[in-house]
Computed example of a mutant assay.
Amino acid sequence: MGSVVIAFSGGVDSALLAVVAHRVLGSNALAVTAISPALAARDLGDAEQVADQFGINHRVIRTAELEREGYVANTPMRCYFCKTELYDQLGVVAADEDIAWIANGANTDDLGDYRPGMTAATEHNVRSPMVEAQIDKAQVREAARWLGVPLWDKPAQPCLSSRIPYGTPVTIESLGRIEEAEDALRELGLREVRARHHDRLCRVEVGENEMDLAFERRAEIVSRLKALGYLWVSLDLSGLRSGSLNDVLRTTETASGAS
């Protein structure tokens, strides 16, 4: 590729990509982390840790997806508007630095879910090297561990707006409450968590292996989340499911097919 801007979110996928790009291209690789109210502070910290550890050329920029009406409206196309904002800005960085390509950390496991952000990537000629190399999530983690990337076993952490049901507007206030809720849950010992934001209700999802712990600490969970302003707190017995708010889309499609 010669030179590349890496969209570096602070997750294991983009961390692996940033490390490998740095090893191959050196100063011709630039990892860029875009911060906004939708990025948890802990993810920025993780990105900075990896960049420092490996000596990666790293830059932080601010994106303004909350100024895009299509994003704030939170339709099922929300991710498209988010990634459009990101890739617009990364395109400016690449042009200013005379860098040939923009790349993201998508792997082959990302191809099976509903991901309108991939459409934005295609429109901006963004490459996905791990998809091109037919690497899946398990292989990403294996390679990251082998290279000493400290995030190799970090749970998937989509942007905070993915916790808000479609049709409910995305606001700075709701994103802040979600981040505080998930920080509180982690402080109670839970590792794989989602705080699904349903107005005054917080629907907590945890990994199957942490369900017993969540029940044990349910009084503390309720106390901590109610202190953040939630009126009701529930624990989803189905456990953590990445993209669970897309269930409504599948239900709608099934109902449409039946009719």
Rank of each mutant, 00 (worst) to 15 (best):
D88F: 00
E69K: 15
T171H: 15
L111N: 12
R218V: 03
G10T: 09
N125Q: 09
L44V: 04
P37F: 12
P150L: 03
E123W: 12
V24E: 15
H198V: 01
G91I: 05
A18P: 15
C202D: 03
S174F: 04
A38N: 12
F8V: 13
P158V: 10
L231F: 07
L44Y: 00
A181V: 06
R163I: 01
I172C: 00
R78F: 04
Y87S: 00
L228Y: 13
L44H: 02
V126N: 11
A258S: 09
G117I: 09
R145E: 15
D113Y: 05
N209S: 14
R203D: 08
I56A: 15
A156E: 13
D247C: 02
T84D: 12
P129T: 11
K154T: 09
S128H: 15
A120H: 05
A95W: 00
D199P: 04
T108N: 09
V131Y: 03
E97I: 01
A15V: 15
L86H: 06
Y80T: 09
A38M: 07
G112V: 06
E85A: 03
A38P: 11
N125C: 06
V193G: 02
R203T: 05
Y230D: 07
S9G: 04
H58D: 04
S27H: 10
S234G: 14
G26A: 01
E132P: 02
G105Q: 07
T122F: 10
L39Q: 00
A64C: 01
F8E: 14
G10A: 06
I164N: 10
L86Y: 02
P158T: 10
N74M: 13
V233L: 12
R224E: 02
A94V: 14
D247I: 08
I61T: 05
E253C: 08
G189Q: 09
F81D: 04
L86M: 13
D247A: 11
A100N: 04
L190T: 07
D52C: 14
E48V: 08
Q134T: 08
Y71V: 12
W101R: 11
R200M: 06
A195N: 00
S234T: 15
G45L: 11
R62G: 10
L235A: 06
L188A: 03
N209Q: 12
H198G: 00
R177E: 04
E69T: 14
G229V: 02
V170E: 07
S238L: 14
W101L: 13
T252F: 10
S36H: 04
R218Q: 07
V4C: 10
V72N: 07
V204C: 08
R177K: 14
V50G: 06
P116K: 01
P169G: 10
N246W: 03
E132A: 08
G112A: 10
A100C: 06
P150K: 05
T251R: 13
P165Q: 05
A121K: 12
N74L: 13
E210H: 07
